[in-house]
């Protein structure tokens, strides 16, 4: 088999994942795109392992490790997303702008300017049901057609 086939497939898959990471709004979708990128890497590792006939099977071992780490990553990532969603009422990553410079509406953030909206809700994070209940209408109100 030509090495070019898996290599090019991995490249394309990686770039699709890249697009997903950069273009998706929902944090869970971004995590999916990250999985795509990881799989592209894994594909590369397996293909090169097959090509090089490594006696230590470094490629395959590393693939296993990557899969395990990816599983851990997705677990932690989803936990973080859930926590953010519970605190902020939204998991849209382009609305989580607490690190922006200046603060306030004067910065003119084009993605919905949700600092005020998101900063209202954090008091509800330890309440069982209120956080998401409050968060949803707000996030729905804050969303606009892209």
């Amino acid at each position: 088999m030509h090495l070019a086939y898996p290599a090019v497939l991995a490249v394309l898959l990686f770039c699709v994942g890249l697009y997903g990471v950069l273009a998706r709004r929902n944090a869970v979708l971004v995590l999916m795109a990250v999985e795509l990128m990881l799989n592209a890497v894994n594909l590369n590792l397996v293909a090169f392992d097959a090509w090089l006939r490594d006696t230590l099977h470094a490629g395959q071992a590393l693939t296993l490790f990557t899969i395990a780490i990816a599983a851990a990553e997705i677990g932690i990532g989803l936990a973080i997303v859930l926590l953010v969603h519970r605190n902020r009422g939204s998991s849209d990553i382009d609305r989580l702008r607490d690190l922006s410079e200046g603060g306030g509406p004067s910065t003119g953030d084009p993605g919905g300017g949700s600092r005020e909206e998101t900063s209202v809700t954090p008091a509800t994070d330890n309440d069982t049901g209120n956080g998401p209940d409050q968060g949803v209408p707000e996030s729905a109100a804050g969303r606009r057609p892209a």
């Binding site: 950069l22 990553i93 382009d94 989580l96 702008r97 607490d98 410079e101 910065t107 993605g111």
Partner: peptide, 17 residues
Amino acid sequence: VRRAQTGNVQTYLGALL
């Protein structure tokens, strides 16, 4: 440079890539 500091992680990542 500060104007680029929008807080949007995707922008940062796009610029980085």
